[in-house]
Structures are given as C-alpha cells and as structure tokens.
Design a protein around this nucleic acid. Structure first.
Lengths: 145, 145
DNA sequence: TGTAAAAATATTCCTTTTCATACAATAACG
DNA sequence: CGTTATTGTATGAAAAGGAATATTTTTACA
C-alpha cells in the first residue's frame, strides 16, 4: 500500500483552488513581469468596461478582497494617476473609483495579454470542454451555499 | 445602453477564481471561527493521509503557496506541537514535515466540518453536475499551459 | 423630529507574505 | 577528485493583507 490516501486529493474545494491556481499561473507571471501585482491587476480589470466606475465596496467584492485592502490599493493607484476617486452626490458615504485615461491605457495592454492567454487556454481545453467548464462554474457560483 | 460590458464578466480566469472563492467562503468562515487561518488549514489538510509527511517544498506546492511562507507557518505549528520536522537521511537538504498526534486530532476535527460542508455543496449542485464539474476541473489542471 | 441603528469608507495596528538572498548539501562535469 | 552549478530550506527586510475600530452619512422608527 501507501497509495495516495491524501485527504485533499478528493476534496472539491481543493480541486477548485488548484484549478484556479494552475490555470492562472502562467498569465500571473506575465502580469508580475510587467511590474503589476495581481491585486492591482484585479482592480484595473474589474473597472474595465464600467462606464461610471465602481464604488469601493463593489470593487472589493469584484476583486474577491477585503474593503480595507482595496482602499489602500486605490490610494496607490490614484497616486500613480491610474485611478480617480469621486464622491457620490446622492449618498456621500459612497466613493466611486474609475480609470483615468492612463489607467485605461495600462489595463488595455494587460487585457490584450489576458485575451491572448485565454485563447491559448481555451485551445488547450477544446471548445466543448470549455463550454462545459464555464457552465459548471456558473452553476456552482449560483448555487453555492 | 450601459449593459454590463465589463471585461471580467467574460473572462475565464475570473470565473474560476470567483467560483473557488464563492464555494469556499462559508467553510473558510467556519475554519477562522475555530481560530485557524486558511494558510494553516491548508498545511494541516495537505499532510492528512500522507504516511511519512511531505517535504517543505512539496507542502508549499500543495498549499499553492511560497516556500518561505510555508517554512514560517511550519515554524509556528511546530511550536504549537501540531507538526514535527525531521531531516531526510539520504538528502540532508530535505526536511520532512508531518502531523503529530495532536496535529492529527486538530485536522480530523476540521476535516469533519469540511466533509460536512462538501456534502451540502454537492447536494446543492446535484450529483451529475458535481461529476461534470470535477471532470472539467481535472482536465483543466492537466491541460493548462 | 430626534435618536438609535445601520451602512460605506478610512485608518490603525499587527500578522502574514513576498522578494531577495544566504546557507547547506548534492549533482555535474572538467 | 576539485570546482562549479544546482537544489532545498531558512532568514531578514520590506510590502501587503487582515481584524478591529473610528468616522461620516444615511436610514428606521418611536
């Protein structure tokens, strides 16, 4: 005996985390090679395609991160001129965050690489497997407790 | 217009990360409520079911973490009496890490909760969807670039 | 309305992670 | 063999992240 009786090998949450990690590894290295952290990439990517931006809270949920972490990351990106904050006129607690033109430019360049990587990933999977995977993940997100 | 033209909504790596995050959220809260960090849970869970333990490097890869982070987490868990280190006799660079009896006891209690949570998750998904998901994730892991 | 509760963000303090590197041991190869 | 390269782990300084809380604004409701 001594066959792999490891607990994690049959554990769904581990399979999920590992799949996400393995699938992202190559692209994440490319991002870091551009001098951009994954946290920053997620903030920029989350804002791309929103026309008024997102509030800090929405951004945190979108980035799968904590609100304080996002506040701090936004601080830095505002200093770098990639983001801008502006208060909501109706509810002055809310703070909107959106890309500046420089931010758009930066994220566009990263997104180009992301799409390129995704194409290769989908190719490796095959179109039908990719569709099955997307459907299964979407169901999981909708139905998870 | 103003329909969701957000980039991330169509991005596979984001779907994966979000699925992993959403599916894990509830259980991870339970773990933290036990006073155990996710990093520690992953170390303990990774070791469960290995009969000689794992080396530090294997443990790092299994935990989807960096080697220095694992070295430090192991330090603390050794201090707490949950893990023990012992050098490899053949290759004295390698350091094996394994659960102590106290560590086994701790991880067993967490695993009981994990299995319970997984049962509910699989129920919510339905058996056939669960199988499809597992197969798709396994393929992704095997075929990712 | 006035007051208590709730919500959104920022801030503080402390832990953890990361990056680079040091150190020790083995492997490769002239 | 001796020397260089490589591998595995640990360590130290710097950055990031997390939990708790403060602050400001809005909502609920007596």
């Amino acid at each position: 005996m001594s066959g792999s009786g490891r607990f994690v090998d049959g554990y769904l949450l581990y399979l999920l985390a590992r799949a996400s990690s393995v699938a992202s590894a190559e692209f994440h290295q490319q991002v870091r090679a551009q001098g951009v952290s994954i946290a920053v990439w997620r903030v920029l990517a989350s804002l791309k395609g929103t026309d008024q931006g997102l509030t800090v809270g929405e951004l945190a949920r979108s980035c799968l991160a904590n609100q304080p972490a996002i506040s701090k990351t936004v601080d830095k990106l505002v200093e770098q001129g990639l983001l801008e904050r502006h208060a909501d006129t109706d509810d002055r607690r809310r703070v909107w965050v959106r890309l500046t033109p420089a931010g758009e430019q930066r994220v566009d360049s990263l997104i180009a690489r992301a799409m390129d990587h995704q194409t290769r990933l989908l190719d490796a999977l095959g179109p039908e497997n990719a569709d099955i995977l997307k459907a299964a993940l979407t169901q999981l997100i909708d139905r998870a407790p």
